[in-house]
Design a protein around this nucleic acid. Sequence first.
DNA 1: TTCAGCAAAGTTTTT
DNA 2: CTTTGCTGAA
Length: 768
Amino acid sequence: MNYLDQLNPPQREGVVNTEGATMIIAGAGSGKTRVLTFRIAHLMRAHGVDPFSIMSLTFTNKAAKEMRERIEKEVGNEARNLWMGTFHAVFAKILRFECDKLGYPSNFTIYDADDTKSLIKTIVKEMQLDDKLYKPNAVYSRISNAKNSLVSWQEYINNPMYKADDEAANRPMLGEIYKRYVVRCFKAGAMDFDDLLFNTNVLFRDHPDVLHKYQHRFRYVLVDEFQDTNVSQYLIVKKLAAVHQNICVVGDDAQSIYAFRGANIQNILNFEKDFPDCRTIKLEQNYRSTSTIVNAANGVIAKNQGQIKKDVWTANAEGEKIDLISAASDGEEARLIAQGIFESKMQNQWHNQDFAVLYRTNAQSRSLEEALRRANLKYKIVGGLSFYQRREIKDLLAYFRIALNPNDEQAVVRSINLPKRGIGPGTVDKIRVFAAEQSVDLWTALQQCRMYLPGRAANAVDGYVTMIKAMQVDVQKYDAHEAAQKIAKASGLMRELFADKTVEGVSRYENVQELLNAVKEYVDNEENEDKSLDAFLQEVSLLTGVDQAQDDDPDVVTLMTIHMAKGLEFRHVFLTGLEEELFPSTMMMESREDLEEERRLFYVAITRAEQKLTMSYAMTRYRFGKLVNCEPSRFLEEVEPGLLNVAKKSKQVSFGNAAPGGSFDRPSGIGGGFATGTGASGASYAKNLVQRPVPSRKPVPAHKASADFTASNPADLAEGQKVEHAKFGFGNIVQLDRQGAAPKAKVNFDNVGEKTLLLSFAKLRIVE
DNA sequence: TTCAGCAAAGTTTTT
DNA sequence: CTTTGCTGAA
């Protein structure tokens, strides 16, 4: 068995000991994916285990796909039959079979974060609560935490501890919101992400026969990235493995970076309690990185108190020192990074794909993108706004959803007046009120609109209902692609987008075409047995940023958040924005645990690098359009100075008296670590650098527009064009900006002076 | 109901 | 800097 020869002793132990409970603590770059793939291959090849009885849970769909491909190489296409995917995807699949037992329709909708937030918003509004206090994000994170800890709304309301907490936070109605939210989702036949796990737990708890079935089906359960599982997830796998006890979890407590989502390192400790005979294996040899990088990472993570003892080491060469770039601004930082990539490419004969630029927040990608574009370096952004989160895509998906589940409230709200059908928010409210008062389905309320709506609105709603009914027929009759095309056409969305000849309009139309292509691809893919639109939608709603179809050109620089980079590796990593308040993030700085999670994030970032690491920070950065002063991150001080190579590129920056071994200049009272203890540390010394003058507002003289005034198509506008505005009179276009989501024109008006107008809002008529 | 125009608020990380 | 939400006019 030659594959066993490719492994070191602990790795081999992890592969061949397939029976019983196993916990593999795998240091960064120690080959845990390799162990996991070989373990599964070994099960199938050496023990003849049926792939249908192996469940392997990963963190992203992409990880699952890669692992499946690697296993396929070992065992052939039988690997297809493995149950492999994210927790959410795998249990959504199981729930589809079983959820009638919980009272859900089998084609239940999955609400994404947008749907969830907008539902919470409407509930808060309906309860007439202060939306400043009950912000959707805050409310949802509270609900989400409850669900991930398996606290139902009943338990939540009855638990005086939660009540006290909420009252202390001035949000006494949270329990009621939780209740209404759950009820509303249930009525809409919808589950949010947390429900997929919560309801799986409910299913297994209340239906022993179902649990029994799956317990016996899955003889082997494997969990990757175990450190990032929450209580809800852990209980599911614990129950599943209770019969055969063949459970293998792989993780690294040092890389736990999802506590904000309910991930619980405690699971690792619980595991040893729940499976007392468990075999614990440590993988400590790092094969990925130079010793410089491994040592730097070790030094950093050693500052954390709570961790499992581990000694990550490497036999790799020392490699280059870690470069540290200090830039005067975020713009300069980006420029120096582009330059750094260019030089590294030349010097090492590396390609674009060998580079990754990592940052803490998505907002940081803008300046980096700009610099890379200017340097002619091809790049891709992983995550951020995914294709399926674009407005036009979500609009069309909303129609798909209604055709399958006409009670999907969020989809109805989204689509009912799009394109404009004369059904405004007032009418929508009336429909909702009727549904609530008569306690009927939303779909029933829509069909009975004549009973409570005035003629004109009722006609409009009737038209909508008729259209949906036709779509429902299409979905039953055709495969996903044909149905999707018919729905896209019938909805009127295509016509509206096609008519829009602006740059953005054209690209939106193309995006919709792209979605239809994706449906086609889905239908043509032999691996997908179920060709219905329903199946396509289920798959799509669980896609993540990393899962997206890669562009045609693989040789590109990768830009992404550190979170997205987990599990990946690159020859040369640039870690940017190492500034107090940004990284570690102010929002995270409420406790020692918070700081330690940020430090683990730093650790993850460092250990992505194979050959070379470059870190950078800027002294000033734009935030909310304001220039803000920044201080170097405390994390920089935690990197052993001997491993650092401070670039001398920027003259504006001094390191104070930072002789080797010294520390960075920092205002007194801040100190290293978290001496001040409060979340406010650091906030005191970041102040606005530039006070921008408030533009004086001139009164706008009235202008009588000509009677036949009509707006020009914004696409026809050009710089230098003479135009007339309905309100401001005549002027010349000084500058056109079609870059952003909202294109703008700067116009110099004869009477009013320069004004910047959003093109979509501008009533500009071209003057010959 | 729709739309232009203006004011205010918002940016952690993700399934 | 962007996006969202409100308001008054048609």
